[in-house]
Design a protein around this nucleic acid. Structure first.
Lengths: 218, 218
DNA sequence: ACCTGAACACCGTTCAAGT
DNA sequence: ACCTGAACACCGTTCAAGT
């Protein structure tokens, strides 16, 4: 909708809350307390309104999440991409990862349903373009992108959600595994926890892309 | 707890429901209607009891999910693994994937918190063992396993949740993307949907493992 | 020891009514 | 056109009481 669209005369009560205000409040909740605290009722309370008033500005909670996604996607940095297609692919994938890693809840929303933001398509576009530049067919490039996306989404969901506050079940279990049935894991013992806490996304990405370009998926 | 543990004399009311019965009912709900329908109240109704009776047999809903996870992990097939370490790695990873792919809700639970089943550690054990057999250090092998796990979890969460029933937002959006800003995606058009519906796990796994063994993660 | 019922503090959403 | 209030059909969990 262009901002200069002809203002056809509105009748009735003037709006007290706006879609923009709703999204801004939703962002505040999600960033300070996590997506699980974002509820229609809580949101209404925060903007001094009622749950049902929200339904005049958004269809339902799912649409609110899509709008929130779009709001984020516009703010994610899009780095200058190098000319070399392989480096272009890697740079775009890393940027996609970094842009999402700060907000793990986005990936939850992204995977939890058929929700995605059109402005986020910049990343697959350039990853696929880079792969084609490396000699892959468009079909192979799509499969390559998907493999990278699975890896990226999995990394963010699993690694991004690792707790740092309280002791984990893993930390209790790993030091005393049975060396008979699980010799490799048992010998790693408590090193498991620190090893798996390391950020290996970048290295993993390079290794994966090496493999995908050497033996493309048909 | 060994089944022949000395039966210390119990006093009071005999139990009407058992943990086993609870888990069996939970399985039935999850398999027929999905994990989102598994609630304490619904579960109680299914076994002809009350929500609060459940809390005498499990600590809370999270523990119920862990118990359910363990129940599944015991039933997942563990194939005979080949001698060749690389093939062993691939076979174990594929089995891990296939065992989980039938039950995408498991991955949700697995990633949603610090929940995992000890009996599921058979898979990482053999993936790491295969990687070490290919010449990687234990540390490199752990990172390789984690990369494979990210890929696998991402694939199951995203691909396993793809709807087949109703038309998706993607299907509406992709046919009319702007060729100026997104030339690669626009030229793919409606082929995107069918391409991304393909099951490429096996091929992706082989390509990834090729890359990870050629350039290990330190 | 085990189970029940009522209660608390929540959800998303519909519907009818008010301004 | 926009907002409100009451209601519906749910959640997980605590607490006090019953058998």
């Amino acid at each position: 909708v262009p901002p200069s669209a002809p203002q056809r005369p509105r009748t009735g009560r003037p709006p007290r809350i706006s879609r923009q205000e709703i999204i801004a409040a939703a962002r505040r909740i999600v960033e300070s307390e996590g997506v699980q605290h974002l509820t229609m009722r809580r949101l209404a309370k925060d903007i001094g309104s009622t749950p049902m008033a929200l339904y005049h500005h958004v269809r339902d909670k799912d649409q609110l999440l899509v709008l929130l996604l779009d709001d984020y996607a516009e703010g994610v940095p899009r780095p200058d991409l190098p000319d070399d297609p392989r480096e272009r692919l890697l740079t775009a994938a890393q940027a996609m990862h970094d842009g999402l890693a700060d907000f793990p809840w986005i990936v939850e929303v992204l995977t939890s349903d058929d929700l995605f933001a059109i402005s986020g398509l910049w990343y697959p576009e350039h990853i696929i373009d880079g792969a084609i530049g490396c000699g892959l067919t468009p079909e192979q490039a799509v499969h390559t992108y998907r493999t990278i996306w699975y890896y990226t989404a999995g990394e963010i969901i699993i690694h991004g959600r690792a707790r740092t506050d309280r002791p984990t079940y893993r930390e209790q279990v790993f030091p005393d595994l049975d060396p008979q049935t699980l010799p490799r894991l048992a010998s790693l013992g408590d090193r498991w926890v620190s090893l798996t806490a390391e950020d290996t996304y970048r290295q993993g990405l390079r290794a994966i892309v090496n493999g995908l370009l050497a033996t493309p998926i048909d």
